[in-house]
Write a protein that binds this DNA or RNA. Structure first.
Lengths: 116, 116
DNA sequence: CAGAATCCTTTACGATACTG
DNA sequence: CAGTATCGTAAAGGATTCTG
């Protein structure tokens, strides 16, 4: 794919936006392990507030990547899971994960070299 | 656990962080076509301000993904290019680009379905 | 031309308290 | 327990101006 093609096609930019915030990719990442309730997802993730988790899940739902299932119980029970579309994103995300496993130390070394 | 502490321990998060802003992935993408001066890079990208381009390039340089070459001339000339480490990131970015071309329409359809 | 400095707006994120 | 409302801080990004 050429740069011109990338720039000419707004879908590519729109797709990059799907990963261009702190929590979207992380939430997708942990959902690969199966559906989960909010409280449990927060344990999988670590360091995310309930409010931001809800916002992130609703954003992913809006984009068709995550499905929300609410059950009429008391206390309420809700589960989130990847949609078929969301699951297609796992392969590209895996590519990043594999890259991180292979080159993460190089990035950290560069940061240290540059006074980080 | 703070986000920073989690990032320090999780290479996947480190990789996501490299792409978790608007311009990092786009700048990496256009640098695949070869080294470029800032003004020319802005033409390749479109819609990025000079200030934000500089900030993005310096951020990528800090992480060892981009190299900066300044020549003592008048008017000054500067070129940026991918490092070897930066080039290793092109494959994962390609994987996501391919996903965008295959599934971008599905995302747009979901957004429309949800009143976007 | 590169890019630093300044000012401004928007948004992301977090903490807390509250509702059903 | 899930989710909303509110408040506050911090950072991203844009526009403009100035300097070497």
């Amino acid at each position: 794919m050429t740069t011109d093609a990338f720039l000419a096609d707004c879908r590519a930019r729109l797709a990059f936006d799907l990963l261009s915030n702190t929590w979207n990719p992380v939430v997708l990442w942990v959902l690969r392990d199966g559906p989960g309730r909010p409280r449990e997802l927060r344990k999988r993730i670590g360091g995310i507030s309930p409010k931001v988790l809800t916002e992130t899940l609703r954003r992913l739902e809006f984009n068709g990547l995550v499905a929300r299932h609410a059950y009429a119980e008391s206390p309420p029970r809700v589960e989130y899971e990847l949609t078929d579309l969301g699951r297609t994103l796992l392969a590209p995300i895996d590519a990043f994960g594999a890259w991180a496993f292979e080159h993460g130390d190089d990035v950290i070394a560069a940061q240290d070299r540059n006074g980080g």
